[in-house]
Design a protein around this nucleic acid. Sequence first.
DNA 1: TTCCGGCGCC
DNA 2: GGCGCTGGAA
Length: 221
Amino acid sequence: MKVLPSFDWYPCDAHSPKWWGGLESPEEVAITAVLVQQTRWENVRKAYENLRVARLNRFVAIKKSSLCSIKSCIKSVGMYASKSKRLKELADAVIKAGGWKTFINRDAREIRTELLRLNGIGYETADSILLFAGNHLIFPASRLIARVLERIGFNVPKGYEAFRRFVELGLPRDLFSYKLFYASSLVTTKVACHSSEPECQKCYLSNICRTFAYKQASNIL
DNA sequence: TTCCGGCGCC
DNA sequence: GGCGCTGGAA
């Protein structure tokens, strides 16, 4: 009899789904979580490839390196001046905690508080790091996901923490479900449910979507 | 809620 | 040149 995969699948090795752009290194996941802020993933890919070539894809290296060498690697992501500072600050915190493994293998609330204190790391980035780089059971409640749910007719609570609890209450409490819902929702936004001019004809949700129904109704008028 | 931030792409 | 993007801070 076949053994089913565990719902607590470890996220960062070659045998797990490509939740986070196919990256297998937890440190690269954390680094790209900062880089992807307000940026398309295609531009992040170029940046982390440059970081790999420069051997700046680990926090020990980032801490030791100069600000401008990081900047030159991550130009493609935009806002590289502030993001390179954010990476340095994150690297400082990681090294200060005793390295990546001791940093990330702690109580999630403790890590979260520390991340949120850093300049340039807000709720979404912190929770992305916790779930995808750290395997902690916290849902990164992206506004993009709220937008999808709002459009199809959910009464989504306002504010990050309220929305996060809303999603967490609706999901099974396991890593696989959190990651699957996050990843698939973002694919939905990427393929069809864009912020402006969504491509509803491509969307598997269009037949239950209030926004699409409204669009159709106004086209008829 | 508004401003900031820079890129890649139309 | 304008616009949108897997946000953050004031």
